[in-house]
Amino acid sequence: MKRVPESSSSRLCGIPLSPGIIVGTAYHVEPFTPSFYRLRISRVEVDQELRRFEEAVAQSRRQLTSIKQRLEAQIGRERSYIADVQLLILEDKRFRTEIEERIVRQLCSPERAIREAAEEWLSSFRSLQDPFFQERGSELKDVEERLLANLTEVNGKNGHLPEALILVAPEVTLSVLADYQLERIKGLVVTKAGAASHVTIIARSYQIPMVSGIENLTDQVHTGDTILVDGCEGVVYRNPSRRETRRYQSCVEKKQQTAATEDADTGPFTTIDGRAIHLYLNTETESEVDSGLRQGAEGVGLFRSEFMFVKNTATNLRASD
């Protein structure tokens, strides 16, 4: 095997989102850019185009249901609500009505109607101050792209992929994770992602190292590059030297050796001068409560009920169909 020259190694600094260290092969995820040439339709085409839109919705529903089932198997039923968020957007009556009205009244093609309606909603999400709701804009964008892909019959399947697959992209969505299969993804390096994004939540749950916030990422890292992702410090090495690789492998081994000792320490916890430290959980699922209590937490300090709301709302909608 040809040795990579030391000078070709580069260090990129970003934001750590999911801990862990991995060396693998970079694979670029290209942004979805649907090509459609029809912006307007004739009056006689309205019924036909409405049927095309409904078929795209039905296909998207089947795909998201399949993704939800895969997530249940891979990261647990409690966290599969992540797919429910997109199902809720897809089934939202107001969103669907706005698209249909553009087709019927303005004689827009379904592709144009979806793009315009989604852009209006995205503008509303961007104007919100709450980071949680801003992150939901990426879910809407993913639904938009799924609908357009199904309308334009884009094949999202991938060919041969490296075993130690590290996805490199401006932004990674739930659909991308599903297309590339979670069990094959060993690392994520993105330009844009937040701590509250669903992709970050999945990465942490599935113990996939993840780094965000690297500008001009796709100009600096190319498909086929060997990269080292340090999700603890937020650092990515492109074509790391043997010395850098050995140093990180040594760090991983030391962390593994100390993990058992740290897990065994369940409290009580005190400061050096003997003052008691009370630990409480920031949680969203019952399984996290069990894990936290085993590690010394005394109770729940913050329960994020919005996730339970999304999950139960989606369940009730499906039951009413």
Results as ranks from 00 to 15, higher is better:
L12A: 10
P16K: 14
P16Q: 10
L17Q: 09
L17V: 03
L17H: 06
I22K: 08
I22Y: 08
I22Q: 02
I22M: 10
I22H: 00
V23M: 12
G24V: 07
G24S: 07
T25Y: 00
A26M: 03
Y27I: 00
Y27W: 04
H28I: 14
H28K: 07
P31R: 11
P31G: 09
P31I: 05
F32S: 05
F32P: 01
T33F: 15
S35G: 04
S35I: 12
S35Q: 15
F36D: 09
Y37R: 09
I41V: 15
S42Q: 15
V46R: 07
V46H: 02
V46K: 11
V46Q: 07
D47E: 15
E49C: 07
R51C: 12
R52K: 06
F53N: 01
F53P: 00
F53L: 15
F53V: 04
E54M: 12
E54A: 11
E54H: 06
E55K: 15
E55F: 05
E55W: 12
E55M: 14
A56M: 07
V57D: 02
V57H: 00
V57K: 12
A58H: 00
A58N: 13
R61E: 15
R62F: 14
R62L: 13
Q63P: 06
L64C: 03
L64K: 03
T65R: 11
T65L: 15
Q69R: 12
Q69H: 08
R70K: 10
R70C: 10
L71H: 00
L71A: 02
E72N: 13
Q74P: 00
G76I: 06
G76P: 09
G76R: 06
R77M: 09
R77Q: 15
R77S: 15
R79K: 09
R79W: 08
R79S: 08
R79E: 07
S80Q: 10
S80R: 12
Y81M: 06
Y81W: 12
I82D: 11
I82L: 14
I82A: 08
A83K: 06
A83Y: 03
V85Q: 08
L90I: 11
E91P: 02
E91Y: 07
E91W: 10
K93S: 14
F95V: 04
F95L: 13
R96S: 15
R96A: 08
T97C: 07
T97A: 11
E98V: 07
I99N: 00
I99Y: 03
E100R: 14
E101L: 13
R102I: 11
R102T: 00
I103V: 09
I103E: 01
V104G: 02
V104H: 03
R105C: 14
L107V: 05
L107R: 09
S109W: 14
S109G: 06
P110I: 10
E111I: 02
E111T: 04
E111V: 05
R112E: 15
R112S: 09
A113F: 00
A113G: 08
I114F: 13
R115D: 14
R115V: 07
A117W: 01
A117M: 06
A117F: 05
A117R: 09
A118P: 04
A118N: 01
E119N: 12
E120K: 11
E120I: 08
W121C: 01
S123H: 14
S123V: 03
S123E: 14
S124D: 08
S124M: 13
F125S: 05
R126A: 15
R126L: 13
